[in-house]
């Protein structure tokens, strides 16, 4: 799936990274708990979250998460958007709840993360 397809499935508005719509994503994760994201996520992931603070971007940069979708129409501050821009991370906002957004991506064929970031199965 491409980031552009994620955008259209979630009827999302792109806030950063309009030029990266052709980039592929292979998995998705829905969480407001960055501790869990750090423990489970891997490369080329879409993160769907209702949590808005700069640590969402920093956590994503550490993990090579390429796309963040803020749910329930939440809009991050300019500071957060600038940090994402600098990190090369695409940011979108959808009116859907986290649950619905995850469900929509899942039924369209984007699976969840299965392995821990450290490589051990979990």
């Amino acid at each position: 799936m491409t980031i552009g397809e994620v955008k259209s499935i979630l009827e999302a508005k792109v806030l950063v990274g309009e030029e990266r719509m052709e980039e592929p994503v292979v998995t998705a994760c829905g969480s407001d708990l960055m501790s869990d994201v750090l423990a489970f996520v891997k490369d080329r992931t879409v993160l769907i979250t209702g949590l808005i603070n700069p640590h969402v971007v920093r956590t994503s940069e550490m993990l090579d998460i390429t796309c963040i979708v803020f749910s329930r129409g939440k809009l991050p501050s300019q500071e957060i958007l600038e940090e994402a821009e600098e990190s090369g991370i695409t940011v979108m906002s959808t009116e859907m709840t986290t649950y619905t957004a995850c469900g929509e991506l899942y039924v369209h064929g984007l699976p969840g993360t299965k392995k821990r970031a450290g490589g051990e199965g979990a």
């Binding site: 501790s35 994201v37 423990a39």
Partner: peptide
């Protein structure tokens, strides 16, 4: 509040 403190930090460091 920032999304941390779930008690995953040290085990996650060891795993990585």
């Amino acid at each position: 509040t920032l999304g941390f403190g779930a008690g995953m930090g040290l085990p996650n460091m060891k795993r990585n």
